[in-house]
Every structure is written in C-alpha cells, then in structure tokens.
C-alpha cells in the first residue's frame, strides 16, 4: 500500500533460508516493529499473510454484491447515494488490500483467478441473501460493525503494507456502520410493519455476524502462530465477546431485540453472556453450500469476463501511445 510497500519485490518469493534475515525478522517481531516487503521473512509468514490479505480483499469485493443489489431499490435518492458511496468504498478496500497482497509477490491476476475458480475463500457472511431493505441496515450495523471490531487491531499488524491498508479502511468503515444503524433506527421507529421488518432482518443476521470472528479459539489451530507473529492481536473469542458487549446496548437504543435468549449481563465477568452458535451451519456455508455462494461467484466471474475487453483496450491504447511518443522522440 504505502511507499515502502511497493519499493517492493521484483523477484519471486524468497524461499532460501537466510540466518541474518531470520535474526533480523525475529528482532523486528520481538520489538513489535513492522516488517516491510524488502525484509527477509519466513516462507510460512509470507504464506499466512498472502492467504489472509487476499481473502480479506476478496471479501471486500464480493461484499459489494449483497448491497449493490439494493441500490436501484433503495427507498430515496439520498439512500441510493449513500449506498453507492458505501459500495464504492468496499471496492476501494478491496484494491488497497490487493495492493498489499501484491507486495508479497502474488500477482493480482492470480488472486482473481483463485477467486473466480472457487479456490480462494472469502468471508462466508456474504453468502447470505438480502431479501429486504432492512438487510441494508443489518449489514451496516452488524456486518460492518463486526468487521470494524476485527480490523481495528489489524491496524497494528506486523506487516507494514497490510497495517497501512487497514488504517485507511478503518477510517472509512465508521460511516458504514452508522448509516446501517440509522436505517434500522428509522425502520424501528416507523410503522408496525417497518419495525417488524427491521426485527426480522436482525434476527437473520445476528448469528452469522458473530461467526465472522471465526471458530471458537479451541478449534482455531492457526491463531496461536498468527498471534506470535503479531498479525493477530486478539483471539476470535475475545473479539466476539467485545462485539457482543457493544451491540447489546446498541440494540436497546434501536428498540430491537437480539435473537438469543441466553444474552445476559454477567456481573462477575463484566461481560454479556451469550448462547452457543451453530458452527455446523458456518462450515456448510464456508464449504460453498450457503444460500448464495453460487450466485456470488457466478456474478464475479461474469463481471470479470465481461470486463476483459475494457482491460485489453486500455492496454492497447497505452501501448499505441507509447509507440507514438517513441516515434516522435526518434524523429
């Protein structure tokens, strides 16, 4: 993303062990400093980052679909404009993150291919459908809200380009969450039907949003290594708890309930207790058997293929201009 990010690599990923490089890397991590693209890094660190950053980028890009789907039907010109701005931001987030992943030596085309071939993963939250307008509210409030919870600590991730991309993204995300909250607030205070629509939507999004933090710590074998590398700063369960603690009071302001009878303030822990989540469903959706997996990928593939002529034309135009200016210089 930022300068040094791209003062980057023009070679294939480094695989040779380099004792000095490793010592320097260990020093940087121990001192909680940033690793930059030109630094030596262990292959496993690079791989972990490529996977995480590209999945993150894919999620931003696929994440445009459930909302883009509502732009034409948003209930007012103002709401259309807001939704367009949000969807455009998500495109930007995807691009910042692809840039960060590219500094690790993975070409953009490769990442796109992995996404549209179904090889790469993205956040399973975007495989749920958005049948009502209230879903635009729930996505902003709960999905962007959970994303923010996840992303704020990533602003201190040890890989410089990733951390810098996250800083930029986090600045933009707060508008996303607030506009969603407002959609729900207006519906909740509206007619009986509107209130019911808001409640029904929150009921559907609550559990999937909580699952965005990933499986429980006990079932998350890679977390410890990511934390040792200062990529991850808090465990899945810690972040999930933090999120629940935030949204329970917020739901009260909204005048809506959360669909979990076990939510209860626990004085002793100083946190809200909440019920078990259905992780079988999570893994089903992750494996591509969610309600909208096929539609999301198909749309992404079509968009990519239908955009091919634009990319080719732009490249041909740039090449012709280059040749013309060379000729002019020679003359």
């Amino acid at each position: 993303m930022a300068a040094s990010a791209n003062m980057a690599r023009n070679t294939e990923p480094e695989t040779v062990e380099d004792p000095d490089g490793r010592a320097r890397f260990d020093e940087l991590i121990a001192a909680d400093q940033r690793v930059e693209p030109t630094d030596w890094m262990p292959e496993a660190y690079r791989k972990t980052l490529v996977r995480q950053v590209s999945q993150h980028a894919h999620s931003e890009i696929i994440g445009m679909q459930p909302e883009g789907n509502w732009i034409t039907r948003a209930p007012s010109l103002k709401r259309k404009a807001i939704l367009m701005a949000k969807v455009q931001d998500e495109a930007g987030h995807g691009l910042y993150l692809y840039s960060a992943a590219q500094t690790l030596g993975t070409p953009r085309d490769k990442m796109t291919e992995d996404l549209i071939s179904g090889k790469a993963k993205y956040s399973s939250i975007f495989n749920y459908p958005t049948p009502t307008w209230a879903d635009m509210g729930s996505i902003g409030w709960l999905v962007d809200g959970a994303a923010i919870c996840n992303q704020v600590p990533l602003c201190r991730a040890s890989y410089g380009p990733y951390a810098r991309a996250m800083v930029r993204i986090c600045k933009e995300e707060s508008f996303h969450q607030r506009q969603g909250f407002e959609i729900l607030l207006h519906l909740s205070r509206g007619t009986k039907e509107q209130h019911a629509m808001a409640q029904e939507s929150v009921n559907r999004w609550y559990a999937p949003a909580l699952m965005m933090f990933g499986p429980p710590d006990a079932d998350s074998p890679n977390s410890a290594q990511s934390m040792a590398w200062n990529i991850k700063r808090f465990s899945n369960d810690e972040l999930r708890q933090r999120f629940v603690d935030m949204i329970v009071p917020q739901s009260e302001v909204l005048g809506l309930t959360l669909p979990d009878p076990d939510i209860k303030w626990n004085e002793e822990r100083g946190h809200y207790d909440f019920g078990e989540l259905d992780w079988d469903e999570f893994y089903e959706v992750l494996k591509g058997r969610g309600p909208a997996n096929a539609i999301r990928l198909e749309r992404r593939r079509t968009a990519h293929e239908e955009g091919a002529w634009v990319r080719e034309a732009a490249a041909a135009y740039a090449e012709r201009r280059r040749q013309q200016s060379e000729k002019a210089q020679a003359a």
């Binding site: 993303m1 930022a2 791209n6 910042y96 590219q102 070409p107 953009r108 930029r168």
Partner: peptide, 28 residues
C-alpha cells in the same frame, strides 16, 4: 515495483491535501 508478472505497471500516488502543503505518498 517492476514486476513482469503484472500486466499493468504499478504507479505510486502522491496527494496534496491542501494548498501550501507537500504532496504525500498515499498508496499505489
């Protein structure tokens, strides 16, 4: 930034936030 595996060249972007200030690197 030169990388043969990317079809389009990489550009560094510098933004001047207001008159009188330097252009600062924003990203690429």
């Amino acid at each position: 930034g030169s990388n043969d595996t990317e079809p389009w060249p990489l550009w560094e972007v510098f933004v001047r936030s207001s008159r009188g200030l330097s252009h600062l690197h924003a990203g690429s």
